[in-house]
């Protein structure tokens, strides 16, 4: 059982990914003052692109829950910590209250994320 090693790697990766998310959020909020939650949107879509790219590059079997140390650190840790589902839903709740941009934010994030993941995977296949 190498669970403690995997857990430690995910902890370190998740810590780093979360700090990057926090800093990117601060940076985007400084430059963009609109109502659309651009920070979470950009973070999540770029994370999806990297997820598609790296999973394909590492040829990760998505069904394999245990994975390797590398995938635990990079995919589950860094990218998992970097992207966030919670803020995506909370931003939407705020928009819902204001009654603006709800649909574009809610479905747009998922559609843009899927396209980004697909593109990432496609680009990774060029390296095979």
């Amino acid at each position: 059982m190498n669970d403690p090693v995997i857990l430690a790697l995910v902890f370190v990766g998740g810590a780093g990914g979360s700090v990057i998310r926090w800093l990117v959020g601060i940076g985007v909020d400084k430059r963009y003052k609109g109502t659309f939650p651009l920070d979470t949107f950009l973070i999540n879509v770029s994370g999806c692109f990297l997820m598609g790219f790296l999973s394909t590059l590492f040829t990760v079997d998505w069904k394999d829950r245990y994975g390797s140390n590398l995938t635990a650190f990079v995919l589950t840790g860094v990218l998992g910590g970097y992207t966030t589902f919670g803020s995506y839903q909370l931003d939407k709740a705020h928009l819902y209250k204001k009654g603006e941009g709800l649909v574009s934010c809610w479905t747009g994030s998922v559609v843009a994320g899927l396209i980004a993941a697909y593109l990432g995977a496609m680009i990774a296949r060029l390296f095979e």
Partner: peptide
Amino acid sequence: LGGLSTFSSFVW
């Protein structure tokens, strides 16, 4: 909560 939730794994 940001670390617990993930958008990339959800979409992937």
